[in-house]
Each structure stands twice: as C-alpha cells, then as structure tokens.
Design a protein around this nucleic acid. Sequence first.
DNA 1: CTGTTAGCGCCTTCAC
DNA 2: GTGAAGGCGCTAACAG
Lengths: 329, 329
Amino acid sequence: MATIKDVAKKAGVAVSTASYALNGINKVSSATVEKVLKAAQELNYQKNGFASDLKRAKTNTIALILSDLSGPYFSELIKGVQDVTVSNGFDLVACSSVGGPKSTATKFLKEKRVDGAIVLANNITTDVIKASARKDFPIVVLDRKVDSPYVIHAEVNNYKGGYDAASYMLEKGHRSIAYVSGPLDSHDNEERFKGYRQALTDFDVTYQSRWKLTGNFTREGGYRATKTLIAQQNLPDGIFYANDEMALGGLQAFQEKNIRVPEDISIIGFDDIQISSYVQPPLTTIRQPKYEAGSLAVHLIFQMLAGEEVEKTYKLATDFIERQSVKNK
Amino acid sequence: MATIKDVAKKAGVAVSTASYALNGINKVSSATVEKVLKAAQELNYQKNGFASDLKRAKTNTIALILSDLSGPYFSELIKGVQDVTVSNGFDLVACSSVGGPKSTATKFLKEKRVDGAIVLANNITTDVIKASARKDFPIVVLDRKVDSPYVIHAEVNNYKGGYDAASYMLEKGHRSIAYVSGPLDSHDNEERFKGYRQALTDFDVTYQSRWKLTGNFTREGGYRATKTLIAQQNLPDGIFYANDEMALGGLQAFQEKNIRVPEDISIIGFDDIQISSYVQPPLTTIRQPKYEAGSLAVHLIFQMLAGEEVEKTYKLATDFIERQSVKNK
DNA sequence: CTGTTAGCGCCTTCAC
DNA sequence: GTGAAGGCGCTAACAG
C-alpha cells in the first residue's frame, strides 16, 4: 500500500508538496502537480482515510442507526435521510444496532467515527446517547426523549395517531377494541396506546386489560397475539395493531381460521408500509411521514453542526388512511 | 474531548499503562486498572476510533455497498450479510452509491475505511473496484464479473432463471412473449435476457426485437414500458419482466386499462420480493436466494481475509415460484 | 507490572 | 513554490 511518502519520493518532491498537489491546493506549480499525480497513478496510491480524518478531526459523514437495516418500514426514512445528506456534501452510513452495546452502532456513537447521528433503535440505551452527544456531535433521536443539550427529539404524533385509529372504529360502531402492542419499553408504542385509551374514554367505553396483547412490532408477534385472541373464543369488534407488520400477521391468522376481515372483525394498523395497500383487504391505517422524518432529522443535524439554535423537540403529523379493513357496524 | 493522555495523567500512570488498562490487556494490576477506569469515567473519555484504526491498520468492519439503501429487494440480502458479519465479531456498515464516483461508497472503497466490501451497485465502476481490491481488502461483487485476484464474483444463475421463466410460458402455450428489460449495462439483466432468448429458440419461436422494451428495473419503468406495449394495440401473449418491481408497475398499467391478468395477458417476474405474493393476482416469478447470497458473500470475505484459497466464481440456483399470473392457453 | 518511545499516514505551520 | 518538522490519538515493542 503506497503512502504519500512513496508518492513524494517517486515524484522527487517533499511530502507536503505532494499533499498540496493531491488535494488541489493552489500552492504548487502545475508542472509539479503533474509529476505528483503521475507518480500517484503509477503507484496506485490511495489516501488513507483514517489518517486524514484523524488529522482533520472531522469525517464529513453522518450515521443512521437502525435496529434493523432490513425491514420495510425503514426504506422511506432512509431515502429522506439520504437525499439531504448527500445534497449537503456529506456521506451517509447506515448501521445496525443488533448486538446492542457491542454493536457497530454503539461503536460509531461512542468512538465518534462520524460527525452526527440519527438513531431509531430501541436497543441502544439512552445512556450511550447521552454520553456521546456533544457540541460537535449532535444526535437526533426518533424513538425516545433524551434530556441533553445536544440531542434533539423528533417524533411522529403517535398519541394522535392512536387516538384517530381507535375513534374511527368507535365512530363506526365498534365497542370492544383490542390493542396489540409493540414492545413495552417503546415510547412510540406507549403514546399510541395512550391515544387509544383516551379515545375509549371519550366514547364512554371502559378499557379492559384482557384486550391488550403484546406483539412486539413483528409480523410473527401479531400473528401469535391474534391466535391467542382467537383461541379465547370471544372476539372483539375490532383490533388496533400498533403497527402494520403486526396487522399483517393478524390478517394471516384470521385467514387461516376463515375469519373474514372486515365482515367478521375489523382491523386497523399503524405506519402505512407499502405492502399495506396490497393485502386483501387493503389495510386501513395511520400513515407516518417517514420520508419527512428522515429529512427533518438530517436538517437538524446540519443546523446543529452550523452552530444554529434549534428547537429541542419536533412533532410530525400523522395521516389517517382509510381503506377497507374496517366495516360499518 | 479527553484523550488517553489526559486519562493517564489523571490516573498518574503512563499512557501505555492506560492503554493496556482500557483495552483489558492482562498486564496491569487490578488496582491500576481501577484507577485508570475511574479517571476515564470522570473525564468522560471516549477513545478515538480513527487513531486506533490507524495504528492497528485494521477496522474490523466490512461494508455493504448498494445502489439504493431503500428498496424492497435489499432487505433480505442485508439480513444475510448482517447475520454472519456480527457473528464473526465484525461490524457492518451499509452505504449507498448514489452520487457515483463521489459517493460515500466510492470513498469507502478507495480510502479503505473497511476491511472488506460487498458490492451490488451498478453505478460503481469496475475500475474503482479493481483499483481498490487487494490482498487485505477483498471485495465480493454480486452484480458483475471483475477480473482481479482479490475480487470474487457471486451471482445468481440469471441465465437459468430467464430460461425457466420464458419456457414456462412457452409450455403453457404462449407464443409471443415480450421482455421488459433492466438497464442495458446490467450483467444480471443481460443473462436473464440470454436465457429468455434461448428458451424461445428451443421452442422454435423467433425472437422479435419489437418485443423488447426497457424498464430500468424500476416500478415506474415497468409501468411506462407496459403503457407503450398497450399503446401498440397488439399485445403479446405474455410478458417476462426482468424483475418484480417492473412487473408490479406493469400490473398497475393493466389495471388502469381494465386489461385482466392473467385472463387477457400473462406476466411473470424475477426476484420474488415480498410484495409479489400479495398483489392481485399473486405474481409468478423466479426467486433469488437473497439471504443466501448475502451470507455467502461475507463468508467469502472472511475466508479471503484469513488467507484461504477460494473459488473466484459462485453461482446460486434460482427457484421457480408458480403463482397465478400466467394462464394456461 | 509499569514507563519510555517510536511510529501509523497524513496535514499544515513555518521557514526558506 | 517547496521542504523540514511537528503532531493528531493511539498502540506495541522494548526496557526496566
């Protein structure tokens, strides 16, 4: 691996000259530049990114930290992040937090291998976020609140979304509505649940804890939760799944038992992932502005990096997407 | 930002001792370790990842380079890569190649910010790949052939997949079969097309160039290609879309014109992305073993890194997935 | 077990 | 316009 020294030697100049030439700094004669470039070419020289980052103390890249790089939900978010990152001349790396404290994600956070980060990954602890954020290393969290001057919190209005979902069913005449929940430690889930409960209260239906099941935000979890609901014999009028993936799992469970949606039971989801409009019946759901969330997050990072004052909290509106999985009772 | 020097000073030891203590190297007394850790804690010390990578000349991370981090196709691939990467104690970063030569991806490749890379991104030039790969920086390419001792080529048997798709329609009595192609410079696309042509030949139907359209592997492209096909009035018996996304676009075009699939025209896709089984009608397609491709790719990288001899080329089998978008003529 | 020291590869002030 | 030299933060011989 050729270094800048080799290049300098081969070109017969000093390293500094080589450096200037290589970085296009207007300080060397074009003849010298020529020589250096030629030498670099011949040696197949590639600069070592670490060394230069180390020196510059800046990486020009921001990290997007997700609990799962795969998964349909993140696609649009990533696009939003990516678009504005590259248009600002920064690089974007996405990394997964699987592995928790010893994941790539944690390392990026702790060892500051990037200039800023966006996190949407419940298995990253708030502690590391707090310990990592600094003036020159702002973090935007999408899935929790963190009390620190250098972390900003942007979230979708989960409460309202949950409220909308439940009240829609209520308005349609449903009285008993089950809630299939995400992970209990999820802030998003919590808010959706609160909205749901408030809607029940406002419509004078009393909340029954037997109708709260846990589905962990996964398709499999939704499937299992639905199975247990079915096994209990006494089905509610409708089910509010705290995300679409779980609703899809539920749909499958119903199909297997020949229970028709929405004729026999209504369901509603949350997120509006792409597939939701394709399933049978098309899923009524609450759309999250995923692209917007992503682009907002990066914008905030750039503002922080530029030293501008920004709000600490942002709330994005949800949309109600009416399709065909809820019937008129 | 505290450095290891500060920690050492505060703990009253030499930097090397601090380094040993911090890295858990069994060389210092537990009392000293204690002291150092405490000092680090108090100074909120975080090690600088660059500096240590620079020194070690090793990053323990591998990069996955994709043309588009979003997009349904990549989900499973990523999972495969991720699973084996983390189980080997390495980190994984995904980066996008949007921006081409000046993308994050190119920088990772050229400046060797990682120990190995997997690329599936047609906008990264083969030149860059060739120039970057070295003994201690193996690259696995999933979408082309590269002639270099340090790059390995793993691909799905696109030829056979294309052949299977076309001959299936042929067997079902279809005579005229259009081909909606991906980007012309795509190796995968080329192979699929060759398979398709061979099938035509084997079934004694002559290839007609008017039935080759370009759809660019995008939903939008498939939609437009299908529109032009419809506009030509004379529809073929069936269409082979070189990927599922385009087939989905085609499906939409047909729906808009009230042309029924498969009654009026048969279609078949390639990839078997998740959504394909949910659309109406469920899409007959060729499945690519995406998870396997991903995990194979990383395995190969680790083998190369370990200095083992490996084959230069791997071919993964496709599966034929029969659903309901092709009729019996 | 602990401290001293020499770089890793690059950038950048400072003289010339 | 060019070269010498110092140092970014860390690790790993090597001595003691």
